[in-house]
Amino acid sequence: MYVGVDEAGKGPVLGPMVATAVRADSESLSADVDDSKRVAPEQRREIAAALRADDAVDVAVATVGTVEIDAPDTDMNTLTVRGQARAVRRVARPDDRIVADAGDTSEARFARRLREFVTDPGRETAPPVEGVAVDAAHGADESDPVVGAASIVAKVARDARVAAIDAAYPAYDGVGSGYPSDPTTRAFLRDYVADHGDVPPHARRSWSTCSDALAAAEQSGLDEF
């Protein structure tokens, strides 16, 4: 048995990063399982629900929140390892093989660090897991069905969190996808800052998108003065 792990939401300016670990026999998974980016949203939700309901599959979802992401003493590679390790530690068992979608330019370095985070008793809150073998590869969510399953659950979980954020701000015209390139997301941040003088608590204030919105609001105030 082995564990596939992947994450969703490294790049957005809104909401947490979500990591998912799936422990399963790859041969038992549906043929529809694939990299989440290649599966339609409705089908992703159906697959994620089926995985969670399958007694032969163990699924764990972990988050890395905005406060943690904004901390000055960390970086996205470390946060990705941390999130993946949190999920893995909840489902992995001794001697399992872990396959991760590498979140680092060096696959070997990512695998080594993930194993350290999974096996070290001093890290995270879930119990460590001894004796695991860890592999990491770029594009593992495309080439490995269990990692693909993890990518689907992570994407569905991340989308649900964005939907909850959207529902928390009914006075605005939606928050969009949460990605900096999304005009709806940028408009939401701009309007929220104009109303409140700061970015919302769900925003990653260390992202340049937030800095730009704050700077624009400040300049607008100076122009009016």
Rank of each mutant, 00 (worst) to 15 (best):
residue 139 G to C: 01
residue 152 I to A: 13
residue 119 T to R: 10
residue 144 D to K: 07
residue 185 T to Y: 06
residue 171 A to R: 11
residue 134 V to W: 01
residue 186 R to Y: 02
residue 180 P to R: 00
residue 179 Y to D: 09
residue 114 L to C: 02
residue 182 D to N: 10
residue 145 P to Q: 05
residue 119 T to F: 09
residue 149 A to V: 01
residue 173 D to E: 14
residue 179 Y to K: 04
residue 126 A to C: 05
residue 179 Y to H: 03
residue 188 F to Q: 06
residue 128 P to E: 02
residue 117 F to H: 15
residue 178 G to V: 00
residue 184 T to N: 12
residue 125 T to Y: 14
residue 122 G to E: 08
residue 109 R to Q: 14
residue 119 T to V: 12
residue 168 A to I: 06
residue 139 G to V: 08
residue 168 A to V: 05
residue 142 E to H: 09
residue 113 R to K: 12
residue 167 A to K: 10
residue 156 V to P: 02
residue 112 R to Y: 13
residue 135 D to I: 11
residue 177 S to E: 04
residue 164 A to Y: 01
residue 183 P to N: 07
residue 147 V to C: 01
residue 132 V to P: 00
residue 116 E to T: 11
residue 120 D to S: 08
residue 176 G to V: 04
residue 178 G to Q: 09
residue 153 V to S: 07
residue 107 E to C: 05
residue 176 G to M: 04
residue 182 D to K: 03
residue 113 R to G: 10
residue 152 I to K: 15
residue 153 V to F: 06
residue 112 R to L: 13
residue 180 P to M: 07
residue 144 D to A: 05
residue 191 D to L: 01
residue 122 G to M: 02
residue 184 T to F: 13
residue 127 P to A: 15
residue 131 G to Q: 05
residue 169 Y to D: 04
residue 140 A to W: 05
residue 155 K to F: 14
residue 173 D to Y: 03
residue 187 A to W: 01
residue 189 L to T: 06
residue 165 I to Q: 00
